[in-house]
Computed example of a mutant assay.
Amino acid sequence: MKINREFFDNYLKYLLSALLIIVIAVVVLYSIKTAVPKVEAEGIKVSGMYNLDLKYEDIQDIKLEDTLPEGLRKVNGIDLFGTAFIGNFSSPNMNKLKVFVVSDKGPFIYITTKNVDYQYVIINRKEKNKTEELYNNIRSKIKK
């Protein structure tokens, strides 16, 4: 039986393309699922590909904002069509951003840090009340 070479080549291309799309989808879903900030005794932790380990003593300021920074640009991370941002970002007014935003709807928790690797952390949750609850929980742990 003779195999049609063109058919085999096309089949292989489609198979590899489908596998690549599946791998990318798994990585994106894994990153979003693990981008959940945990408020612990010593600080805020996010596990996963773009992890965060921020001690409370390294927090200079924390505030709630309704919008994301203008010109948010991915350095190393995931920008899910402007609806979710996870990883390392920058903007014209803020460099060295760690972003864990799973909804493009505010509010957003802006944290200014003393860390040299990242100066700012921006976090939110899908639901507004969960973001506000997280903000209040972090704020209560910061010693002023």
Rank of each mutant, 00 (worst) to 15 (best):
Ala41Pro: 00
Met49Val: 14
Ser103Pro: 06
Lys33Leu: 15
Phe8Met: 13
Lys141Glu: 07
Ile32Asp: 03
Pro69Phe: 12
Ile109Pro: 03
Glu133Cys: 04
Glu70His: 05
Tyr30Gln: 12
Ile21Arg: 00
Asn4Met: 04
Tyr11Val: 01
Glu132Arg: 13
Ala25Trp: 08
Asp58His: 14
Val26Gln: 10
Thr67Met: 13
Tyr11Arg: 06
Asp66Asn: 15
Val39Leu: 09
Lys105Ile: 12
Leu64Lys: 06
Lys13Gly: 00
Asn124Gln: 14
Pro37Thr: 11
Ser91Cys: 10
Leu29Asp: 04
Asp66Cys: 01
Leu54Cys: 11
Asn115Phe: 01
Ile32Cys: 03
Ser90Ala: 10
Gly71Cys: 12
Phe100Ala: 10
Met1Lys: 05
Tyr50Val: 12
Gly71Val: 08
Glu65Pro: 00
Leu72Ala: 11
Asn129Arg: 12
Ile123Pro: 01
Glu57Trp: 00
Val99Met: 08
Thr83Asn: 15
Phe100Trp: 13
Asn95Pro: 09
Lys45Gln: 11
Val23Gly: 05
Ile59Gly: 01
Met94Phe: 14
Asp58Met: 09
Ile86Met: 07
Ile138Glu: 05
Val101Asp: 02
Lys128Phe: 02
Glu70Leu: 09
Asn115Gly: 03
Leu68Phe: 03
Val116Trp: 00
Leu12Asn: 07
Lys143Asn: 09
Val99Tyr: 06
Tyr30Gly: 09
Glu6Phe: 03
Asn10Ala: 03
Asp61Gln: 11
Glu57Leu: 05
Ser17Phe: 12
Val23Asn: 07
Glu133Trp: 01
Asn4Cys: 05
Val116Tyr: 08
Val121Leu: 09
Ile86Asp: 03
Val23Met: 09
Ile24Leu: 14
Val99Ala: 15
Asn95Asp: 15
Thr131Val: 09
Tyr118Met: 06
Ala41Arg: 11
Tyr50Gly: 11
Ile62Trp: 06
Tyr120Thr: 15
Leu64Tyr: 04
Lys63Pro: 01
Glu127Ile: 01
Gly48Phe: 04
Thr112Met: 09
Gly71Leu: 10
Leu19His: 00
Lys74Gln: 14
Ala18Val: 11
Val27His: 06
Lys63Ile: 07
Val102Asp: 06
Tyr56Thr: 07
Gln119Glu: 15
Pro107Ser: 07
Asp9Ser: 08
Leu15Tyr: 06
Val27Thr: 10
Glu40Lys: 15
Ala25Gly: 13
Lys63Phe: 09
Tyr118Arg: 06
Ile111Glu: 03
Glu65Trp: 00
Pro107Asp: 04
Thr113Lys: 02
Thr67Cys: 04
Thr112Val: 14
Thr83Lys: 13
Gln60Tyr: 02
Pro69Cys: 12
Lys45Glu: 10
Pro107Phe: 04
Ser103His: 05
Asn93Asp: 15
Pro92Glu: 13
Asp58Gly: 04
Leu29Tyr: 10
Asn88Met: 11
Val46Pro: 01
